[in-house]
Amino acid sequence: MRKLITPFLLIAIISIATSQSSIADKIKVSLQKTASQKDTLKKNKVAVLTQKDIVKDTLTEKYGKLATYKTNAHASYYADKFHGRRTASGAAFDMNEYTAAHKKFPFGTMLKVTNQVNGKWVIVEVNDRGPFVRSREIDLSKKAFMEIAKNKGIGVMTVTIEVFDK
């Protein structure tokens, strides 16, 4: 019956056979690492989610449900010259806030505007009337427009407009 060579016997043979102790030390360390490794296979576990583990949609909680108003709408942004002027709602226009101008929506309506090219979106509040260009559906503040724009040098983009129903 043949006996198998154990890792420790192998280390002893290698250390005697070689005159350099550093090689034997390296082999000894590597053999100890392999001998002490644990089984890395994990058993499949079934995860049970409780009610508190389910993440709620915070946008729906805050603003209400979304309803698509228009796809392939053309959006532009206000020129800088309107900064500080009064809007149709009476509020001062601030190009650094998330506001919009629309012809039909009541003031205070919250809209989700999504750029169709890159999928970025922003939530704005309607506080003005416009745009007064026939082919455009919505005017965004400069901050809202630049946040979702793919090309910062272009002033018009194609968007999807969704309305929050509360």
Rank of each mutant, 00 (worst) to 15 (best):
M1Q: 10
K3R: 14
L4T: 15
L4Y: 12
L4D: 15
T6L: 15
T6E: 14
P7N: 06
I13S: 12
I14S: 04
I14T: 00
S15Y: 10
I16C: 15
I16Q: 15
A17F: 08
T18E: 00
A24I: 02
K28V: 05
L31W: 11
L31T: 13
Q32A: 11
K33H: 14
K33F: 13
K33Y: 14
S36A: 12
S36C: 07
T40E: 11
K42M: 04
K43T: 06
V46N: 10
V46E: 11
L49E: 11
K52V: 14
D53G: 11
D57Y: 01
D57C: 05
D57A: 03
T58D: 13
E61K: 08
E61T: 05
K65Y: 06
K65H: 09
A67R: 10
A67M: 12
T68P: 03
N72G: 08
A73D: 11
H74E: 09
A75M: 03
A75L: 02
A75H: 01
Y77A: 02
Y77D: 00
Y78H: 09
A79D: 06
D80G: 11
K81W: 00
K81S: 03
H83A: 02
G84R: 13
T87H: 10
T87R: 13
D94H: 07
N96C: 01
Y98L: 13
T99G: 06
A101R: 01
A101K: 00
H102Q: 05
K103N: 02
K103Q: 07
K104M: 12
P106S: 08
P106C: 05
F107P: 09
G108N: 06
G108Y: 02
K112T: 10
K112Y: 10
Q116W: 05
G119F: 00
G119N: 02
K120I: 05
K120S: 09
V122T: 13
I123K: 10
E125A: 07
N127T: 06
N127R: 09
N127P: 03
D128S: 09
G130K: 12
G130W: 03
P131G: 07
V133C: 11
R134P: 06
R134E: 04
S135T: 14
S135A: 15
E137L: 06
I138D: 13
D139K: 09
D139W: 06
L140I: 03
L140K: 07
S141V: 01
K142C: 00
K143P: 04
K143V: 02
A144D: 07
M146T: 14
E147I: 01
I148G: 00
K150N: 15
T158D: 03
V159W: 07
I161T: 04
F164E: 05
D165F: 02
D165H: 10
K166R: 08
